[in-house]
């Protein structure tokens, strides 16, 4: 199994510990990751897709041409990258006029879009290509029933016709089963299919209401479950649920418990025994307690009480 690792912008710049976790865990699971040298922004929905459709498709096709040249399927963790690339691929394959216009632009850079590219999300690859049995077999430090909630990335669910791999889209299960493969217990809660609210222009354009939207989700997780961690598989969910828990504490001024947020690859890497300082070191809500619980005596010493 070989895949082209599409990094996008946020993972390599803001949370490179997620990149590190993917680069360490995937080969251990038999999935070789090759670099897509020269890949750019997907482009994010708030950039070219909001200004010029052909330019937007050209940026996606730039990225496709690199994966096609390497002859590998493209895999990404970022939900927005995944969705933007899937939508662009569909438009390029279905609309000859747009494809011709885009190939005309690519020619200016000596590239071309052939249409062979395959765009995958990392949950899809982990679940369908690698499988939960293989993952369970590689775990050195199982979660031993540690209670978790999961955040399904909206961009991997809707529109299911374009991005879907987990069916039905209204009742996804792959991320839950992947966490269970690590020995975790996944708790249901009332808003578990609500998106995190962190993508697009909501937070920037209407901060107070966007915060309330996220608070509703966070309150549901903390009030309705005994979960100790949140597991996500999208850089935006990771950053937003992490940041918004602090915003909620600031607003409430109370002692609502806070849940450490892990990208799935980070949790997987911790369970496989990789160095937490490399694979799970950047966060707002401290993750040391959760990591110590998973790694026991092997993990970093809990700070003295």
């Amino acid at each position: 199994m070989r895949y082209g690792l599409f990094l996008g912008c946020n993972v390599p710049a803001v949370r490179p510990d997620v990149e590190r976790a993917m680069r360490l865990t995937m080969p251990r699971l038999g999935a070789e990751l090759v670099d897509l040298e020269g890949s750019a922004c997907c482009p994010a929905f708030g950039t070219f897709p909001s200004a010029d459709e052909i330019a937007s498709l050209a940026v996606s096709a730039w990225n496709f041409s690199i994966a096609e040249e390497r002859g590998v399927e493209l895999v990404t963790e970022c939900g927005s990258c995944y969705s933007s690339l899937r939508i662009a691929r569909k438009k390029l394959l279905e609309d000859g006029e747009k494809r011709d216009a885009v190939n005309g632009l690519l020619a200016r850079a000596g590239r071309s879009f052939r249409g062979t590219v395959v765009v995958r999300h990392i949950i899809d690859v982990l679940y369908n290509d690698i499988g939960t049995d293989r993952i369970a077999a590689e775990i050195e430090f199982p979660l031993k029933g540690l209670a978790a909630t999961v955040q399904y990335p909206c961009h991997t669910l809707f529109p299911s016709e374009v991005v879907g791999f987990d069916f039905p889209s209204g009742r996804p299960r792959m991320l839950r089963e992947l966490v269970e493969a690590l020995g975790g217990s996944v708790r249901a809660y009332s808003r578990d299919l609500q998106c995190c609210g962190g993508a697009g222009g909501f937070v920037k354009g209407s901060f107070a209401s966007a915060s309330e939207f996220a608070f509703g989700k966070i309150r549901a997780m903390t009030d309705e479950t005994d979960a100790g961690i949140i597991v996500v598989s999208c850089i935006t969910c990771l950053e937003h649920l992490d940041r918004m828990q602090n915003e909620l504490r600031r607003k409430e001024g109370g002692d609502r418990r806070q849940l450490a947020v892990f990208d799935y690859s980070q949790l997987l890497a911790v369970c496989m025994g990789f160095d937490p300082a490399e694979v799970a070191s950047i966060s707002v809500i401290p993750r040391e307690g959760a990591i110590a619980r998973i790694r026991g005596a092997e993990g970093p010493a809990p700070s003295p009480a």
Partner: peptide, 28 residues
């Protein structure tokens, strides 16, 4: 976190970035 300082994206290849811009100079 044990990674190369600049990832192997367009950030590492100024020549490719120039080609990327040349492509976009053809857009409306």
């Amino acid at each position: 976190v044990g990674l190369e300082e600049v990832p192997p994206t367009i950030a590492r290849f100024p020549g490719l970035l120039e080609k990327f811009r040349e492509m976009l100079r053809g857009t409306d």
